[in-house]
Design a protein around this nucleic acid. Structure first.
Lengths: 339, 339
DNA sequence: ATGAAAGCGCTAACAC
DNA sequence: GTGTTAGCGCTTTCAT
């Protein structure tokens, strides 16, 4: 049994001041890099800080300064989707990375639409200095409003009227889709279908446009379109509808690898061989692409980099530095065995 | 153009009190679910809170209560390893999940050994209510000490003298290794080598023991051992050393799929066919296992569940509930094409 | 350049 | 059961 003195309470700024022989105000100035401190004072304080192993208490700091040194990463999805989509994990990694070398802390908000309000209140209540919103989802309106209140950086171009004015990091979905489709055309395919994403999501709209761009440029027909949620189940159903049309096709551009993965099952059921009968390209070189059989030829997005960039930009904004409103990151086609 | 009043400052507890016609203390009691409040008062306050869209300010709350409602997830690795290992992403997901339905917030600390002290100071300074330490790494001593200061739950059994007293969530690495090895034996293999992990990591030690258990039980020799870091490069070199010994073997148990993945390259270089010449099993049914060629037969760990469980247990401890010191989660062998 | 002093918004005795 | 009153540890005027 050791003699438990009360909690090994951490050193306070006051103690640092005492050791350094200065006032608390001076210690505070040193901590906050104020220029108005003499070299000697600064050194005395630094020594005291090192000696005591002092670390400022964030709560006190936040309360007094009205800054929190916390940023929120909002993922407007329910937990099921959150798990199903490897995209989120990558972006989180990137954000965490970028933050690890700063004084900012991450607050993860996974918010089903049902309590979007709760999240907004949390954010508005001054619990974070800014927010990152992964706008994979359609319902961005709430968060666009938030963006008028505090620094917000979106991941993916937010839909809606105000989307124009938002700060966001994205990839060029339209160009990516075009490249993926051109790959099919280059492979000699001429009747190219697509399974597109939801019409209320930027990725859904843009990727469909890109597919059309490629077909138009090549003088090919662009009538074989089915829409679906970005899930394997959605892809499965969409492919069944496509097959039910009775119009034959020799290639498919799927707007996401999850869609492609579901489509693949439906094609297998229908006795179609990939890539012999139908070749496939898609977007997202993720788990679904690499584990598909055959492995999918897909566009790779720099997902970790998206997270990292979002975080960097947000901090720049919080700290008053100028940043450009739109940042587009590059993508690349990764060759698989499906096309 | 709306009339921008100064920062849309969030409502304070004081305002709620005014609207509800009670004192601040009563509002505080309602917020904190104190039983000592009349139904009427409680309702009046609730109404006022709803009306104003009030959310408590965490900083103020923390400062006054000396609680932060934040927990840290410490990953004692450098960022390179952090990215290379899919294990971390899964565990983080699990933790985030578990936390999303609580009032706790996540603070991610990715700490190269070089600034382990900085992290410890941060933690000690009362910036979190407790910590989760992903003890994949060998240097647990620092965090074991931390565990005497605040609630800590480890992921993986921490090594070292005090490891015995720590709270942790883990899988039965020894049993997992035994099962993986038995699978090779069941396949008719008799000369079974292993590439083991570092001797200073629990997973390294335990998995080697499990391999031995299986061989001993079957009356087979257990001399073909090489050690390596848990990386593909380590696995590659270990396999070369194994081959250089000149003793033939017809199976390999790799202590991780990253090791197996590297070993596979070395075997390919040596002209060995898998599983024809040498069959392989490993641990971690992750990216490395599923993307290996051939796909590895491996033990799957419930990584997301590990994170979720760690978070739950930590919160239980923080809130003073009794929890068992050790939680072992189940694993399962997933059949691939390598054995 | 430095110090004194007044809070930041909340919780936690304590008294009633 | 409710209100009063001190702070929690820091930042930030304002003097000096």
């Amino acid at each position: 049994m050791t003699l438990e003195t009360s909690p090994p309470s951490a050193p306070t700024l006051e103690q640092v001041a005492a050791v350094a022989g200065v006032s608390r105000a001076t210690v505070s100035r040193v901590i906050n890099d104020s220029p108005k401190v003499t070299v000697e004072a600064r050194e005395a304080v630094s020594r005291a800080i090192a000696e005591l192993g002092y670390v400022p208490n964030r709560a006190a700091r936040s309360l007094a300064s009205r800054r929190t040194f916390a940023i929120a990463l909002v993922i407007p999805e329910n937990t099921a989707k959150f798990f199903a989509d490897p995209y989120f994990a990558s972006v989180i990694q990137g954000v965490a990375m970028a933050l690890s070398s700063t004084k900012y802390t991450l607050s993860l908000l996974i918010t089903p639409e049902t309590d979007a309000e709760k999240s907004r209140n949390f954010l508005q209540a001054g619990n974070v200095d800014g927010a990152l919103v992964l706008s994979h989802h359609s319902d961005d309106r709430a968060f666009l409003a938030l963006a008028r209140t505090m620094p917000v950086v979106f991941g993916g171009r937010p839909m809606g009227p105000e989307g124009e004015h938002a700060f966001y990091v994205d990839v060029d979905n339209r160009a990516a889709a075009r490249v993926a489709t051109e790959h099919l055309i280059a492979g000699g395919r001429t009747r190219i279908a697509t399974i597109a994403g939801p019409a209320d999501m930027a990725a859904g709209v843009d990727r469909l446009d890109g597919w059309r761009d490629a077909l138009n440029a090549a003088g090919l027909a662009s009538s074989l379109v089915e829409r679906a949620d970005f899930t394997p189940a959605g892809g499965f159903e969409a492919m069944r509808r496509l097959l039910a049309r009775g119009e034959s096709f020799d290639a498919l551009f799927a707007a996401s690898s999850q869609l492609a993965s579901g489509a693949l099952s439906a094609m297998r059921d229908a006795g179609l061989a990939v890539p012999a009968d139908v070749s496939i390209t898609s977007i997202d070189n993720d788990y679904f692409a690499t584990n598909a059989n055959p492995r999918l030829t897909a566009i790779e997005q720099p997902t970790v980099e998206v997270g990292r960039t979002m975080a960097r930009l947000l901090i720049d904004r919080i700290e008053g530095r100028e940043i450009s409103r739109v940042t587009i990151l590059p993508t690349a086609l990764v060759q698989g065995e499906s096309a």
